[in-house]
């Protein structure tokens, strides 16, 4: 279970570019939740993910994962149990290393004992092969290929596998299909659902696709101005139409626009 209490983050405090990215945000995510998150640009979605992943330290507030306060834990330690995918498929893999080497790095997280000088074992090799087969992209026959030569869709699929090969306590998906062509995006979306359901992974997914937001997972949040302005559970989502959601979305967005206008006119 993930608990976020009164989380605040202000960028460039005290300057003309001051921006409240997270404004006293509270959120409880239950185990097994698959939450989709909506919000206009600048609503604080990615900032929320960065705070959870530990990219920066929040100004105030607490982040508690499975009863452990991780607010001050550095990002590389959190990544032992928080998996993350970005919009940019190039971000999650090392281009000059082979598919197998990339998977071996991801699998490091499974190590209880840290034997720095061990190499990829035959057993692990077979396990990587089996996992790659599940992607149905033929990557299992190209394990010694450098990742830099793969397509964006293939790289994102590999990144997804790397993030989940050791099932994380929490999976953060930051518009991870937005930079892909429609066919690849569908494929990655299907793979994501399949993997999340199979592993019962608790998952947060940012998306700009309102249909997808209502159809995927079991709960939908909408963010605006660093707050959660809408929290729909599974039942409520069934009775909500995309048009209603769009209306709320525009309200949230225009609120921000109005704020901007005030800012500009007061200059």
């Amino acid at each position: 279970m993930l608990e976020i209490q009164n989380l605040c983050k202000v960028f460039n405090p005290g300057t003309i570019n001051e921006k409240t990215a997270l404004n006293n945000l509270n959120l409880t995510v239950n185990d097994g939740d698959f939450i989709t998150i909506l919000g206009s640009n600048g609503a604080g979605k990615s900032t929320l993910f960065n705070a959870i992943a530990g990219v920066f330290l929040a100004d105030s507030g607490k982040i508690i994962l499975d009863g452990e306060n991780i607010t001050f834990q550095p990002d590389y330690k959190r990544s032992k149990y928080i998996g993350r995918l970005f919009q940019d498929p190039l971000k999650g893999t090392a281009p000059h290393m082979t598919i197998e080497e990339n998977l071996a790095l991801a699998y490091l997280r499974a190590e209880k004992r840290t034997d720095s000088f061990s190499r990829i074992s035959r057993k692990e090799h077979e396990m990587f092969r089996e996992q790659l087969k599940l992607l149905e992209m033929g990557l299992e026959d190209r394990m010694n290929t450098q990742v830099g030569t793969l397509s964006g869709g293939q790289r994102q699929a590999l990144t997804l596998l790397m993030a989940t090969i050791v099932p994380p306590k929490l999976l953060l998906l930051d518009e991870h299909t937005a930079a892909l062509d429609p066919a690849a995006a569908d494929k990655i979306t299907d793979l994501t659902k399949e993997i999340v359901v199979r592993n019962q992974t608790t998952c947060l997914m940012i998306t700009h696709n309102l249909h997808q937001a209502l159809r995927t997972g079991n709960r939908t949040l909408m963010m605006s101005d660093g707050r959660i302005i809408l929290d729909l559970n599974d039942e409520e989502r069934r009775t909500t139409t995309v048009d209603e959601l769009l209306k709320r979305f525009k309200e949230g967005a225009s609120q921000e626009l109005d704020d901007d206008r005030i800012l500009l006119s007061s200059d």
Partner: peptide
């Protein structure tokens, strides 16, 4: 090779 992925792979750069 890719600083971004490293801290996301539980490696301390």
């Amino acid at each position: 090779d890719n600083m971004d992925m490293v801290s996301a792979s539980s490696i301390n750069p």
